[in-house]
Design a protein around this nucleic acid. Structure first.
Length: 569
RNA sequence: CGGUGAUUAGCGCAGCUUGGUAGCGCACUUGGUUUGGGUCCAAGGGGUCGCAAGUUCGAAUCUUGCAUCACCGACCA
């Protein structure tokens, strides 16, 4: 490709709307352009990268035995009613009508369509297991699209689905998908980690997310500093503190704490360590037979944070997690939100393991502006249950039993999931088994955010000059950068010759044939992250040499012109 | 969805307080100059000042409404 025929579209200045480095560089290097919130046009350079990622994903999916298909982006709503997600999915699902006022959705994912397809196509256990995948545009009407293509509303996703008669078979495919994902991210040249993930409301036995490590990531990942353990913080178990709870030493006593609203204010007002306090959160419980929603109290040590996912999983707590209103708080605890405590509280009480290990703690007294000191479980409050409902924090013992927790940020680029029979059951997806009986299929699903990978790769591979693409996904393998080609026939001749040879050899090369000063060319190619620059100048032509510059290492070297092709073998 | 801020040329911004029909840098065009790291000089082209209504002789500027975009938050005990 010659730059004279190419839409280069590089920018010197960073558009003000771009917050994270990958978004800034994607705009400056001419990879994408914004159309509306969360919607992006892929320019030639960006599309080249996107296609390379796509192809690596495709190759490894095929190697794992999956068949590529392509499903429609527009899906009839009755499929979603059949699966139950028409009501469950919420406003992220974009709903629309055709000219006959028939309702449709823009597909945010394709479990419904594929389950329907397989239900129609398969009739015998002999056809199993079967894995299908597609690489396709998804639409999710995100609350807050941000960070460019990292969290767009329309994005490119690889979604794969596997179908099985038995759970053991699903586990086998799940493992082979896990391995395929590792091969994909290895080939992409990314620093990534598979981490244990929450299985969500769908249930199932296992789920892993694949995270690219980067400070700009939106997820917290908990690692062990002494083993391979890694889990999304939503999932990481906070284990109970070791040893017995200490015996009470103090009597329960009231202390006034006027105008103290938060736990931090309380700790500094009473001049105590925050981890000797507990905080009490009132949330909505599950609706009872009378149609009322009771209030449930969740109790945490003052320095800990509620893990909403864990809380939602409790059978007593309504999902999605909803905090009690001021009226409900007043009716339950007879005080404002800042003074609730477990002593004498008349509702279901669930105490985090760490909070349950405290003795002589400080808590609200269920009376405005009053707290208790010297509170103790059993003695002062005995009707409660204990559960893991907090986020792990740095330094916690790892749930794997080895080492302590370290927390890093990650960008979720892949998620694999043992679905079980949820969709197959809802959509009547079954085959005849060996015994000639109808048997509902068990499913797995496996997603990769193809467009998000492009942004994640930049987050991990850049410097002050621009992008430093991993070789496997660079838009071009090399660029020919001639010095003053307009003035030097020799330079032009050499550049054209190399361009011809490289093209014929199938090397993706960008020939910078603009009449620009060298500095402009260098700046553009470094911004775009071309891994190898072939710099042709009068300076080295007498010796029949050109200069090489490696974008990743910054190394410069000379090479004989007739040796250039050997670089690409 | 709540909060905050923004919207003036392709991009980055000034002008608004104190109304008088728009300006700077980059980019673009032309000519010259320069040529191994974003040269320099000159001359140009390009804007319904987000949209709508109002106040006024007159609105980018004041008022009201709307739209769009971005950021923060969605943990309050």
């Amino acid at each position: 490709m010659r730059t004279s025929q190419y839409l280069l579209s590089t920018l010197k200045e960073t558009p003000a709307s771009a917050e994270v480095i990958s978004h800034q560089l994607m705009l400056r290097a001419g990879l994408v352009r914004n159309l509306a919130s969360g919607l992006y046009t892929w320019l030639p350079t960006g599309l080249r990268v996107l296609k390379k990622v796509e192809n690596i994903v495709r190759e490894e999916m095929q190697r794992a035995g999956a068949n590529e298909i392509l499903m429609p982006m527009v899906q009839p709503s009755d499929l979603w009613e059949e699966s139950g997600r028409w009501d469950d999915y919420g406003p992220e699902l974009l709903r629309l009508h055709d000219r006959h006022q028939r309702p449709f959705v823009l597909g945010p994912t394709h479990e419904e369509v594929i389950t329907k397809l397989v239900a129609n196509e398969l009739s015998s256990y002999k056809q199993l297991p079967l894995s299908l995948f597609q690489i396709q545009t998804k639409f999710r009407d995100e609350i807050r699209p941000r960070f460019g293509v990292m969290r767009g509303r329309e994005f490119l996703m690889k979604d794969a689905y596997s179908f099985h008669l038995a759970h053991e078979c699903l586990e086998k495919t799940y493992q082979s998908m896990f391995d395929a994902y590792c091969r994909i991210f290895d080939r992409l040249g990314l620093d990534y980690r598979p981490v244990l993930a929450d299985t969500g409301s769908i249930g199932g036995d296992a789920s892993h997310e694949f995270h690219v490590l980067a400070d700009s990531g939106e997820d917290d990942i908990a690692f062990s500093d002494a083993s391979d353990f890694a889990a999304n913080i939503e999932k990481a178990e906070a284990i109970a503190p070791a040893g017995e709870r200490a015996q009470p030493k103090h009597e329960l006593a009231k202390v006034a704490a006027p105008n103290v609203k938060t736990i931090d204010e309380l700790a500094s007002y009473l001049n105590v360590d925050i981890n000797t306090t507990v905080k009490t959160l009132l949330v909505c419980g599950v609706e009872n037979e009378q149609g009322d929603t009771p209030v449930v109290a969740l109790i945490l040590r003052g320095d800990h944070q509620l893990n909403e996912i864990k809380a939602e999983h409790l059978p007593q707590v309504a999902s999605p997690l909803t905090f009690a209103t001021d009226e409900q708080i007043r009716a339950t605890a007879n005080c404002n939100a800042g003074s609730i405590g477990p002593v004498g509280l008349n509702c279901e009480i669930i105490v985090d393991r760490s909070a349950a290990h405290l003795s002589d703690f400080i808590c609200g007294a269920n009376e405005d502006d009053v707290h208790f000191t010297g509170a103790n479980w059993q003695r002062d409050s005995s009707k409660f249950s204990v559960a893991d409902i907090r986020n792990v924090v740095e330094g916690d013992p790892s749930p794997c039993g080895q080492g302590n927790i370290v927390i890093k940020r990650g960008i979720e680029v892949g998620h694999i999931f043992q679905l079980g029979t949820k969709y197959a059951q809802a959509m009547n997806c079954a085959v005849l088994n060996e015994g000639g009986k109808n048997q509902t299929l068990t499913m797995g699903c496996y997603g990769i955010g193809v467009s998000r990978i492009v942004a994640a790769a930049i987050e991990q591979n850049h410097d002050k000059y621009g992008i430093k693409w991993p070789k496997a996904i660079a838009p071009f393998q090399a660029a020919i950068v001639p010095m003053n080609m307009a003035k030097s026939a020799r330079v032009k001749e050499t550049a054209e010759l190399l361009y011809k040879q490289l093209n014929e050899a199938g090397i993706e090369v960008l020939f910078d044939d603009r009449k620009e000063r060298p500095g402009v060319m260098f700046a553009d190619h470094e911004l775009m992250g071309t891994p190898l620059l072939l710099i042709i100048g009068e300076r080295n032509l007498d010796a029949q040499q050109i200069e090489l510059k490696n974008r990743i290492t910054g190394e410069k070297s000379l090479i004989a012109i007739d040796q250039v092709m050997s670089l690409f073998n």
